[in-house]
């Protein structure tokens, strides 16, 4: 697995673990998780992956990455 694919896999895996929640709530949780535990480089990469639409982010993950993108740009 390339490292970008691996990152996407990790993000989707987090989303699956919040699978019992409604999509909105799940996306918020996934975003929270990524913000708290991923280093800046991983965050910017996953945001990049979402932009390039090269990879298979699940709907919940994609929404979560949008939240992450908002938060990271607004923090500078």
């Amino acid at each position: 697995m390339s490292s970008a694919d691996h990152l996407v896999y990790m993000a989707n895996q987090i989303a699956r673990n919040f699978g019992a929640l409604a999509d909105d709530a799940a996306a918020t949780k996934v975003a929270e998780h990524i913000l708290l535990y991923w280093d800046p480089r991983m965050k910017s990469r996953i945001v990049q992956c979402a932009k390039n639409e090269v990879s298979e982010l699940s709907a919940v993950t994609a929404e979560a990455v949008r939240i992450v993108a908002d938060k990271t740009t607004s923090n500078g």
């Binding site: 490292s3 691996h6 280093d39 800046p40 480089r41």
Partner: peptide
Amino acid sequence: AEPGLRIPNMLDAAVDNE
């Protein structure tokens, strides 16, 4: 204020030459 890399992430980043 930003979290750092975990061991597996360090190794991934190393393979990416970063």
